[in-house]
Design a binder for these strands. Structure first.
Lengths: 349, 349
DNA sequence: CTGTTAGCGCATTCAG
DNA sequence: CTGAATGCGCTAACAG
């Protein structure tokens, strides 16, 4: 069913049908009704591809996400999708996985679909490979990054002060007499490196020496340094993260039996850590205080309930959506902005 | 950058460029190389909209999901997206929300985008409104439903035996001497009604009378019966579900202090229930056994760890993807199939 | 107020 | 082996 079929049956020209569909003025009410009735009768819906070809706009935006199963990324995608759908845009969501080559390829696919704009969720997507691919394939359209930034004229970055937040976390623990702290992070995303920097800054403030800090990076496997080109890390499921946190906590307990606090880069790791500590009979927070990041539901499920750094992902996502929509309408915004984090204090500190 | 631009610079016709792009035979290797180099030079990527217009295929499939934030739906979307992307299909994912009108509309949007196939995630999408909309807008393409079914010639349903699973759960509890059981469900999705039926069947087996069963349906709000047309339930966040489980457990404890077991329709509610029981000093599972459904990570986070009905969502999703891909290639499959559930027994029973 | 014409970018005939 | 012509379904000038 095309506008020509409708036009023929209505006894008008295709352009008239088009005008009716798009609510353009200058059609006699009688004609309009006749066409409308046929449209309804055949459940006609315009072909977006054809429409996009002539209007040079797909009315769609692309969302790139490293792993759709990570709950805080999903929350972000939800906020963005709601905002975009409300404005008539369709969202093409692609899970890239951790491989740089795939990230590159998926940026290209968005270009191929001629999306009107794109949003990248998570700092793991703010890589050199992605940057190059954006320059090649998404040069003409606005791109926003949630919790990341890339130095390109058409790319907007919305960040949060995670470093400052973690430093506050260190102070919080220190204020409770916990000064022997460990920091544990999973991947080496820019965001996690920021958190690590915050930890270092906080510990330096406490008078600790840089080389004595207890910083645990997740095992990247043998012979693969973090940031190694071509290092293909498989995607980790939530269950694996939980277990990883569990083992990390045990390892720290072994290395430093006098540890007084653990700050994990994400809630899920922290939840695993709490499970390990509890199982070992270590009191949380009496003996060891624990803190996570992201303010996810995981922190409310474990017991004791987890103190966490709320990095305002929802607000960041909303900001990124708004900035993208603004850009789509020609409105300008600063290329880079930062929101501030909050510590949600619960029972684990 | 179009094939014409490339063609002009290469000194060939557009059709030659098209042949090179699509790896068609019958081009001199020399010409092919010349064109390839230009394609590479300009980072050319064919316009999918134009291509789709002539090939009558968008190489995309639509995914409808009620709420992308619900973790087991997201897991499902992930599996599907992986399967589809591997075959060169793009996924257009839309969160419908609970309103029937929106579900209807989003089916139409998929039609408008001329998706080659569609997958609906969750039994909440197997409604009359969706059925009508599919008949209007997706009549020609294959549709698969994850954990649901709809009686339409082009719609495939993949279900799990949740009723049987819950009945087994009842037996499991009875086997441990817990015979005074309550069932609690959140929404009135077909899937939840199935679970309720399983509970009823199990309790009847235990010799209980149908009218004496302790079945708690979530408060739909004043004056809104479950299944009420036009009842607009707001989407509930995971946090609200957790709290709801908490309050439900308290209410049951009040109504029936002698309760010995609680079966919740989803893990998250059960996790909230466990929190309430623990807070009240009720031993789990000593005094009250608890069970959830979905085998999500939530069940591994709460303590004691939750016994749950694994409804094999991942397998169901994989099956739905495969069936859709088969249909896209003209291969036939039964219209309706069922997988079987397993109980994962942990500490709460 | 409505019809005619052209063209969006591409794949696919059919000639040559 | 390659080019010219056609049309996918639609919108947007431009006429009338």
């Amino acid at each position: 069913m095309t506008i020509y079929d409708i036009a023929k049956e209505a006894g008008v020209a295709a352009s008239t049908v088009s005008r009716v569909i798009n609510n353009k003025p200058g059609i006699r009410e009688e004609t309009r009704k006749r066409v409308r009735d046929l449209l309804e009768k055949y459940h006609y819906t315009p072909n977006e591809a054809a429409r996009g070809l002539v209007t040079q706009s797909s009315r769609s935006i692309g969302i790139l996400i490293e792993d759709i199963r990570v709950s805080h990324h999903t929350e972000s995608a939800y906020v963005i999708e709601q905002a975009m759908t409300a404005r008539g845009y369709c969202c093409i969501t692609l899970s890239t996985g951790p491989e740089e080559q795939k990230k590159r390829e998926y940026v290209r696919i968005l270009g191929q679909r001629r999306v009107d704009g794109a949003i990248l969720i998570g700092s793991m997507l703010a890589t050199e490979a992605v940057k190059e691919s954006i320059e090649k394939h998404l040069k003409e359209i606005p791109v926003a990054i949630v919790n990341g930034a890339l130095d390109l004229p058409n790319v907007y970055g919305v960040l949060t002060d995670e470093a400052g937040g973690i430093r506050s976390g260190v102070r919080l623990m220190a204020g409770k007499g916990k000064r022997k702290l460990a920091f544990i992070r999973d991947s080496c995303s820019p965001s996690n490196l920021e958190k690590e920097n915050g930890f270092i800054a906080g510990m330096l403030e406490l008078g600790r020496k840089r080389e004595d800090l207890w910083i645990y990076r997740e095992t990247d496997g043998p012979g693969r340094a973090c940031g190694d080109k071509g290092a293909v890390k498989p995607l980790r499921t939530t269950r694996e993260s939980l277990r990883e946190g569990y083992h990390m906590a045990l390892k720290i307990l072994e290395d430093h039996p006098d540890v007084e606090g653990m700050i994990f880069s994400i809630d899920l790791l922290a939840a695993g850590g709490i499970q390990a500590l509890t199982e070992r009979g270590v009191k949380v927070p009496g003996q060891v205080a624990v803190m996570g990041v992201d303010n996810t539901i995981y922190g409310e499920l474990c017991s004791p309930r987890l103190t966490t750094l709320d990095n305002k992902l929802e607000q960041v996502s909303a900001a990124a959506s708004r900035i993208l929509l603004d850009a789509l309408e020609g409105k300008e915004n600063p290329q880079k902005m930062m929101l501030f984090t909050d510590i949600i204090e619960r029972e684990s500190t």
